[in-house]
Amino acid sequence: MIDTIFIERGVVNHSRTQSIKSKFKNPTIIEVDRYQEIFNKRSQNFRIQKQNPALILAKKHDNFVLPAPSGFGLASTRNFYFSHMYNCIYDCRYCFLQGMYSSANYVIFVNFEDFFDEIEQSIQVNGAQDLTFFSGYDCDSLAFENITGFAESILPLFKSYPKVDLEFRTKSVQLEPLKSGLPIANCIVAFSMMPEELAKRLDKKAPSIKRRINAIEKLAARGWPIGLRFDPLIYSKDWKQLYKGLLLEIMHRVPREAIHSISHGPLRYPKKMYQDITKLYPEELLFSLPMSENNGYVDYGVDVENEMAEFLIKNLKNYVEEAKVFQCVVQA
């Protein structure tokens, strides 16, 4: 539970600040001038902060919408992302956020409307089709929904642009407002998946795969388009068997018609980020396994990456058409 909320002076009286504050019992409230005073400072320790993150409520001033890194998107010609929140309530061992920020506190930008305005501007500039907007690049899109109400606020916007896609990427099984709302054909709920045996070791504090599949089943039954994200693909001695088991379970439980897209991507870090994360968790098994540096990235190497990708594509063949399967490899 959040014990402390740092609030930028400029948003103290914002209605969303008040509403978020009211969700917590007796937090200590401390005012700050700008969130950067406290977030991501020299000598902060992500690992210790992660044991008791504070909440920071702030206003974002610019760069609400950014082009997605190459290799991140799906079929659309242009892909964008936005982050109404930095950091995540889960603690996946491979998460790149722990290498990106020195702070594990959660930042929420309360001026959602400015995000929505810039999204609309991007749609107008780029034409209202062949665009995908990704939520949840610097956080989990839905995990904090009961506190922020972000998804609920943004859905009406995308309802009015039926040819522009919005993706919520999540591991959360907190399904409101989706479960009780009518599905929107261009709003995709994309779940990150990996075999349960690996998730138990790596997806710390996140819902189990079993619970994620249950959630997918419910949303699919409501008619929401489902994305499956096998990203990162984690190598292990028996990875084929583990991934095969996962795919069979999904195929058995989730009707193919519900699948909007499936994407997969290798475990891969920029070199500096890999060094920072391994320093943070030197005892972590994931980072003791052989990975090598290739073109500034640390990864399993192209052979393993290809083998895993091909295996997945082959095993998905009877489930969805190939055009729905994408490989996501973020490049420098």
Partner: peptide
């Protein structure tokens, strides 16, 4: 002290793991 400001107010610190319990 979870927020500490210096006399000239040019520096602000947010030290320590918080032990609010």
């Amino acid at each position: 002290g979870v927020k500490v400001i210096n006399p000239t107010k040019e520096k602000v610190f947010f030290p320590g793991y918080r032990f609010s319990k």
